[in-house]
Design a protein around this nucleic acid. Structure first.
Lengths: 379, 379
DNA sequence: TCAATATGGTAAACTGTTTTAACGGTCGAG
DNA sequence: CTCGACCGTTAAAACAGTTTACCATATTGA
């Protein structure tokens, strides 16, 4: 305790000794250096060291340099637990994911998480992963992580209307941002892709190609954005005087398998369909897979389109016409806004990022129209 | 401070009052309940409460129930920062990922992470994500997370031989497990898939189908497991008297684009090739994509195989023959062993999980042999 | 019956920071 | 030549738990 003297003339040797014992890394894991050690070596109080660490302007240039030198020499690193305990900020964010079987192996969530992690890291935050398992919800784990001070805020991915527990965040007591979805009801913060606009672009394009009998492979109508797409599909068809039949809607469950099965249903129940609009790329992949092996030629006989523009979309055969979602950017922005909330932002967060159509090879003019055009061209 | 009396008869009313003020959730965020509050209400010392929390056997059934009742009534949740600070265990693990552009949107890493998170959650651990950016390495961020007490241990994914900093973990001072790779040099803990065995099964299968001119689309020879596969490929060919030419090896950079480009090179430089062995599924997808649009029929003209068995492998056209890697299980096991290390395990961790061949539709007998067989069959 | 050993609990020290109120010294103004 | 303001620094009080050493009783064994 009193092993370090405080007289000015003895400072240097003492420093050297401490520094050496550190750099040599003596086998005994000689308990790590603390603020107290640094304070002693620098002949200042621990308060001063703390202030240097948080570069508080109250510290004079001279003192700040003296302390910094000691910090560098000793390789002192403040204990984050102690810092968080006393400062009330953990510098950690949670990413809440739906509890899918092998949930992370998913391009959609992966892209969002990439954006989040990149930005969080840049702003000095760590990110913890949390899966919304039933038990987690039942035991209010989502509140626990705040109350037990694991995190300062949370980003909620893959949420849907049945997640009533999100209502508990409406008072903004616990900073939370809904990522790529939105709720009209609870006044929650959100960052979302403009699904409606994307769907409009896609429908306009398909209609322009002459398609009228368009099947829809959708999923999860409890997700607001998914409903947006479905609604646009319906409105646009009605806009050209077509009332989509019940059988044109098929649930693809957001998976490749589901997409394949839905395509099969569609073909069986409505053989005269000329295009299939899948509300995500995974289902489109499944549908294409099914059609290919049924010998249906894409896009000559049937056009197939997706939604998301995941990496794989470009590497199917034929490559997929789809709507590009700026998921990475959504992640980045959500992360940024969440941190602002943690730091006291009070204005509501609500942003809608633009989406755009990506035309590749899975779409073509409707076959009949194609023939007509060729006739007109005099062939 | 002395607002709570300790006489037995006054306990009940006091409890009720505290409990009500909590359940009503008064608007003022009346500072959260602490051990001290609980102790006072239960008429025991804070030490006792702490022991109940960590179910220390020294506490009698009666006391433990009395305290537990108060805990339940007040909804008290221990502050994890304080717990970690004084217990020296954070109950947090780090997952270190290579800094790929959009790294998480990858089926390979996703599968590993799924396994890790599932098991970590089950064992009461949280998982933080860390990207191995150059700056992170240069500043020894990987040591920082231990010293600053962010985590108890680390799982290292996507490592390779150029990651010399891993040598710093050879003394096992900081618990770390290499996931799905291994190093002969530094005595690090690891859990890995049996790549060599998988490659052998695949090569045996291809050779059995009569293939001799087999191209290899590989990548990242600085990864030990990747080299294992390449070596098996070479040995097996030599085993049947074939010396693979330099031009049979093509670098596919582990991506779809790379796979497509490599396939193009291969076809140009060695048109008589009858099979292509890709060392991961992504490159196989790229190769198939390229071959398809060149009009090459798979598997009639050329067989293509992959490695990994990611979800997409089953949904390409034709579906991909590949080697299944138990990545989820590797994640689970790595997580488990790491936690054992944290709790003092001293035996080295080194396990190799079995892999197996998955035959789908992208492979067939070598064309010439096929004809011969048909002739023999008298057709 | 008395020392020896469990049993159950407690007070105090400890974990490593940040923050706050106070303090001594210098300076300019009245 | 005081008085208040300001500046840089400090001691001490949080923060919210765990751990340790010790202290009463109660139970055993001889």
């Amino acid at each position: 305790m009193a092993q370090f003297t405080k007289t000015e003339d003895e400072l240097t040797p003492v420093v050297r000794e401490r520094a050496r014992s550190i750099s040599l890394g003596d086998e005994k894991p000689s308990k790590p250096i603390s603020v107290r050690d640094v304070a002693k070596l620098a002949n200042v109080s621990v308060a001063t060291v703390s202030m240097v660490l948080n570069d508080n302007p109250r510290i004079s240039r001279a003192t700040q340099m003296r302390v910094q030198r000691i910090i560098d020499q000793t390789g002192y690193r403040p204990n984050r637990l102690a810092q968080s305990l006393s400062s009330r900020y953990t510098q950690v964010l949670a990413v809440l994911l739906p509890a899918l079987r092998h949930g992370f192996a998913d391009a959609y969530f992966g892209e969002l998480i990439s954006g989040i992690c990149d930005r969080a890291g840049k702003l000095g935050y760590k990110v913890i992963l949390e899966q919304a398992k039933p038990e987690f919800i039942r035991s209010k784990g989502y509140i626990d992580i705040y109350e037990r001070r694991y995190v300062d805020g949370m980003l909620c991915l893959g949420s849907n209307d049945r997640h009533h527990y999100l209502a508990e965040f409406s008072d903004h007591r616990y900073p939370m941002v809904v990522v790529d979805n939105y709720f009209s009801q609870w006044g929650l913060d959100f960052i979302v892709c403009d699904y409606a606009s994307g769907a409009q672009q896609m429908m306009n394009y398909l209609l322009q190609l002459g398609h009228r009998k368009i099947g829809l492979i959708h999923a999860a109508q409890e997700i607001r954005t998914a409903r947006d797409v479905t609604e646009v599909y319906q409105q646009k068809l009605q806009g050209v005087g077509v009332e989509p039949l019940k059988s044109w809607y098929q649930d693809g469950k957001f998976t490749e398998e589901g997409g394949a099965a839905a395509a099969a249903q569609l073909l069986e129940q409505e053989p005269r369909i000329t295009a299939i609009f899948c509300t995500n790329d995974k289902m489109a992949l499944g549908a294409i897979h099914y059609l290919n092996r049924q010998g249906v030629r894409i896009p000559q006989q049937i056009s197939v389109v997706g939604f998301d523009d995941t990496r794989h979309a470009a590497f199917v055969n034929p490559s997929l016409t789809t709507v590009h979602l700026p998921l990475y950017e959504v992640g980045v922005l959500a992360c940024e806004r969440l941190i602002e909330r943690v730091h006291g932002r009070t204005e509501k967060v609500a942003e809608r990022l633009a989406t755009h159509l990506v035309v590749r090879e899975s779409t073509a003019m409707v076959p009949a129209l194609q023939n007509e055009m060729e006739l007109l061209a005099g062939r």
